[in-house]
Computed example of a mutant assay.
Amino acid sequence: MTPTASSPLDVLDLDIRRTGETTAEIAFTLVPELIYFDGHFPGQPILPGVSQAHLAVLLAERVWGGWPSSATISRLKFRRVLAPGDVVVLELRHYPSTGGLSFVFKLNGSPASQGDVGDLA
C-alpha cells in the first residue's frame, strides 16, 4: 500500500463558495502550521508570492477538478504581506476555453495580491 501524500490544504478550514460556473470565493485563515511559512521568515513569517499562486492552483483544482493550462505566472501584483492569522478571501476565475486562472487574495475586502496562471486568451 502506498502512503497518501498530504496537501498544504489539509491544515486549512476552507469555506468554498462557488459563485458561478467559472468563479469562486474561498475564505480561510492562514494558520501558522501552513508549510509555506517554514523559513519565510524566522520570527516574522510571511506567505511567499509563489506560494500564493500555488495555493490558488490547488484550490482551483479542488473547485473545478483540473489544473491551469501551463505553469506560466503573469501579472503578479503584491500590495500587502500575508501572515499567519490573516483571514483571507481568495477570489478565483477559471477560463475553461484556455485553461487559465486568475486569482485575488483579499484582506478586509481589499486586494493583497493578484495574478494569473496559465493562458487567459
Rank of each mutant, 00 (worst) to 15 (best):
A24S: 12
Q114H: 10
R79E: 14
D15G: 02
A121L: 09
R79T: 08
V11M: 03
P84A: 06
W64L: 14
F37A: 00
G118S: 02
L107H: 02
D86S: 05
R80I: 01
G99R: 08
R80E: 15
T23S: 14
I46P: 02
P42G: 04
H54P: 01
E25N: 13
A71D: 15
P111W: 00
A83S: 11
V89A: 11
V87R: 15
H94C: 10
S70F: 09
P3W: 02
W64T: 05
P68W: 07
R62I: 04
A53E: 04
R93T: 15
T72G: 14
A71T: 14
F78W: 15
Q52T: 00
A56D: 04
L58A: 13
A24W: 04
V50W: 00
Q44E: 10
V63K: 03
T4N: 10
T2K: 10
V117L: 00
G115V: 06
L14M: 07
A53L: 06
L9I: 10
I46D: 00
R62D: 04
R17L: 14
G20D: 14
P68V: 05
R18E: 15
A5V: 11
W64M: 10
G109D: 08
A27N: 06
L12M: 12
S102A: 13
G49V: 04
F103H: 07
P84R: 05
